[in-house]
Design a binder for these strands. Sequence first.
DNA 1: ATAGGGTTAG
Length: 757
Amino acid sequence: MNLTKQSKLLFKPPPLLLLRRLSAEPNPPPPPLHQSPQDSESSIMTQALDLLLQTPQNEWNASPQLKHLLFSSSPTPRLLIQITRRFPSSSEALTFFNYIRSNLVSEESIPSLSYAFQAVFELASREPDSPEKLFDLYKACKDQNVPLSINSATLLIRFFGKVNMVDQSLLVYNELDPNIRNTHIRNVLIDVLLRDGRVRDALIVLDEMLDRESNFPPNDLTGDIVFYPLMKKEHVRSGVSDEEIVALVSKFGEHGVFPNTLWLSHLIARFCRNRKCDQAWDILHELMKLGAALEAASCNALLTGLGKDGDFKRMNQLLVEMKENDIEPDVVTFGILINRLCKSYKVDEALEVFEKMSGGKDSDGVSVEPDAIIYNTLIDGFCKVGRQEEGLGLMERMRLQKGCAPNVVTYNCLIDGFCKSGNIERGQELFDQMKEEGIMPNVITLNTLVDGMCRHGRISSAVEFFREMKSKGLQGNAVTYSTLINAFCNVNNIQEAMKWFDDMCGAGCSVDAIVYYVLISGLCQAGRMNDASLVVSNLKEAGFCPDLVCYNVLISGFCKKNMLDKAYEVLKEMDDIGMKPDSVTYNTLISYLSKSGNFSAAGRVMKKMIKEGLVPNVVTYGAIIHAYCLNGLVDEAMKIFKDMSSASKVAPNTVIYNILIDSLCKNNQVELALSLMDDMKVKGVRPNTNTYNAMFKGLREKNMLEKAFKLMDKMIEHACHPDYISMEILTEWLSAVGQTEKLKKFVQGYAVSVAPA
DNA sequence: ATAGGGTTAG
C-alpha cells in the first residue's frame, strides 16, 4: 500500500468553517521541550505505522518490535492520535484502539486513549453511514469508560447537529464531564441548537456562560453564533422578546463581547421601526458605557429613529456623545440631520449644517463631502418652503462639485417647488432642461407636473401632458390616476373621475387602496351614495379594506343625505370587524344629530364617546354650537361656548368664534359680536378673512361705517387678505354710501379709518 | 433624497 498517497487522502483539509471552529481547541500538545525533538517522534510514528500495516492485526500482540516501539516509554497522546488517524478506515483504527487499550492499563494513559478514540471518530465521520456508526462508536467509547476528548465531543455534537440528530448532540453534551464543557464546546452546541430552531435550549446553555462568575465566559465566536440568528424573522417570532435581546447584548457586553456594527445597526433600526426608540437608545448607551467600539452606522440608525419621532433634543445629545466618544460622523449622519431639519422647515439651519460639514475650518475638524443625496434633500427642503430660487442655486453648486451632478431627483424636487407655487411654466422649462441634459424624466416627474397643473385649474393641460408622455412610453401609475380622479372630483365632474378610474383598471396598472378612497370620497362629496357604496364593494373585491377614514367619509356622506339608517349600518360593520370609531366618527354623528334638532340624541352620543375614552374637543363643541345657532338658539350656543372654555377646558379657536360672530351678527347682536372679537384678541385667537366677512355683513346691516373702517385697517395690519366675499360686501356697501375711495385705498393696502390729510 | 388621498364645527 502506498502510504504517502493514503495519508494525503486522509489529510484532506476540512472545510474552512469547520477548521475555524475545530481549531479553537488545540489538539494534543506537542512534546515537551526537554524530550526528544519532533523528528524522533515522527520517526517512531513512521516505523510503527509500517509495522502495523504490514503485520496482520491478530499478530500485533505477538510482535515484540511493535510493543517496543509503542509501549517501551509511555506513548504521548499526540503520537497515538497521529498513528490512529493514518489507518485507512475507522474499523481498522478501532482495532488498533483496542490493541493499545489492552496494552495501556494505567490511569495516566487515559488521555492518550481519549485522543486515539478521537481519531476513530474522525475517520468514521468521513465514511458512509457515518451517523449510525458514530453513535455506535460513541456508545462503545462510553462502555469502555474512555472519556471523550474535547474535540471528540465537539465533533460528535456538530456532526449530529448537521444530520438533524440534535437530541444526540444534547446527549453527548449532557453526558460530558461538566469540567470540560468549555466555551468552545458550548459555542458548538449553541450553534447546533439555534440552527435547529431550539432557541430556548440554546439560551439555557448560554445563560450559564453569561453568568458573572462564569468559568466559561462567552467569546467573540459566541457573539457571532448567538446574535445573527436572533436577527432573523423566524427567530424573532420564536419567542425571544426585544427585552431579552437587550438583556443578552448587555450581558455579553459585561464580558467584553460586543455585536458588530452591522448587526447593531439592524437591531437599532428594528427597534426604532417598532416604536421602541427608548430601548434602542438604552442599548446603544449601555454599549457605550461598557466601552464598545461604536461606529457611525449604529448611531445613524438611532438618529433616524429619533428624527422620525421629532426628538431633536436626544438627537443633539447623541451627536455630542458621538463627539465625546470619537465616533466620526459620516455622510449619512449629516444626511439624517439635514433631512430632519428640512422636514421641520428649518432650512436655514439645514444649510448651516451643510456648510459646516465640508468646511472643516472650525475646531470640529470634521470634513465630509456632501453627496447628491444631501444636495437633493436640501433642495427639496428649500422648495418645500417656497424658496425655489435658492434651490436652483444649490443645483448650480452641485454642478461644480466632482461626481455630484444633478439627477432626476434634483429636477423632480425643483419642478415640484415651482409647480406648487403656481409657476407651472417654470416647471415645464425645467422639464425641458433636464431632457436636454440627458436626464430621463420618470413617473414621479410626470406625476409632479400633472399634480401641479391640476392644482392650478389646468386639468385639461394635465390630461394632455399625461397622454403625450404615455405616447412616448412613460406609463402612469396609481398616483397619476388618483391625482386626476381627485382633480375631477374637486370640480364635481364625477363622470370624468369614473372614466379615469375605469381607464386605470384597463391600463393594467397596479391599483392601491388610495385610488379607491379618493373616488369614494368624491362620490360622497357629490352625494352619490349608491355609487360610493358600489366602489366600496369594488374595493373589497380587490382585496382591500376600508380604513377608519374611509368609514368616516361614508358615515358623513350618509348623514348629509339624511340616511341615518345607512350611517348606522356602516357603524355596525365597523363594530363587526372590531374597528373602533374615533372622535371624527363621533363628531360627525353629533353634528348631524344636533343639526337636525335632536340635541338629546347628540348628548347620548357624546356620553358614549366619553365612555369609550375619547375626549370631546373643539370640533365637538363647534358642531353643537353651530347647531344651536342654526336652530335659532344663539343664547344656548353662547352658554355652551362659555361652558366649553370654563368647565371643559377646551380652548376656542377661530372657527368657533366665526360661527358665533356670524350668528350674532345675523341675530342683530352686532355689539356682542364685536365684543367677541375683543375676546379673541385677549385669548390670542387670530381672526381670519371669514371673521371679518361675518363682521362686515353685520356692520353693513347696522350701517356702522366707522367700525367697518377700523376693521379694514386691522385686516391690513394683520396681513389678512380680503377674498371675493369681502370685496362683494364692501364694494356694494361702500359704493352705496359713496366711499369708493376708501375701498380703493384698502385694496392698495393703505389705512382707511383716518381721514386723508 | 423626489410624486397622489379621503373624515368632523366655519
